[in-house]
């Protein structure tokens, strides 16, 4: 019997998207050629940018956010052959990014802790704490990505964790951000 755990802001606020794109990847493809992460983020950002007035601003922000989320999905895939997916949904007012990957139970529990802290603590304090912590340790992952996404783009972050029979965990990670974070609303300037 698989166990399901919901963490953070999981509920989607998107029921009908204007733009939707879904891609599946073999994580090993991105490990084998690391530039592909940035390339995919840039491509999707350029694709979506036509939905905005300031296309270059939108490209820069969307690519930055997507790259962060995609890098995480690749890094935290315990078997680099098990496919991951990346879905982008845009309603005009909201942008939702969803990734699916299979990770170790340890990595899944770290994500739960991180999301819990992100959703309950002061994000600026958490950002500084994380920088101080990473500076003092020799970790291969900074743990800063999700914190930055919340801090810089006021993104809502949540995840659904499904325990698999093989002891691994499928993670469906979801990020929702208001498009006001990408460009100011008409009349607000």
């Amino acid at each position: 019997m698989s166990q399901v755990q919901l963490v953070g802001e999981w509920q989607s606020r998107i029921d009908d998207s204007i733009t939707e794109l879904k891609m599946r990847f073999v994580p090993l493809d991105l490990v084998a050629h690391w530039k592909r992460c940035g390339m995919v983020a840039d491509f999707l950002a350029h694709f979506l940018a036509y939905n905005f007035e300031e296309t270059s601003e939108a490209t820069n922000i969307v690519s930055t956010v997507l790259n962060e989320v995609l890098e995480n999905a690749v890094k935290f895939s315990c078997d680099k052959h098990t496919k991951i997916s990346l879905t982008l949904r845009h309603t005009g007012d909201f942008l939702e990014i969803e990734t699916t990957n299979v990770s170790t139970m340890n990595d899944a529990q770290s994500l739960v802790q991180k999301l819990t802290r992100i959703n309950n603590e002061d994000i600026e304090d958490l950002f500084v704490q994380q920088l101080e912590y990473t500076a003092a340790t020799d970790s291969s992952a900074s743990g800063l990505g999700l914190i930055s996404l919340k801090k810089d783009y006021n993104a809502s972050l949540g995840a659904k964790l499904i325990t698999l029979d093989n002891g691994k965990c499928e993670i469906v990670f979801r990020l929702l951000m208001a498009t006001d974070e990408i460009e100011k609303r008409i009349g607000d300037a």
Partner: peptide, 17 residues
């Protein structure tokens, strides 16, 4: 610098420190 990921922010923060 048109793009940098969060690992890079960590890197820069070490220069700040």
């Amino acid at each position: 610098l048109t793009f940098m990921n969060s690992s890079g922010i960590t890197g820069l923060s070490r220069l700040v420190m």
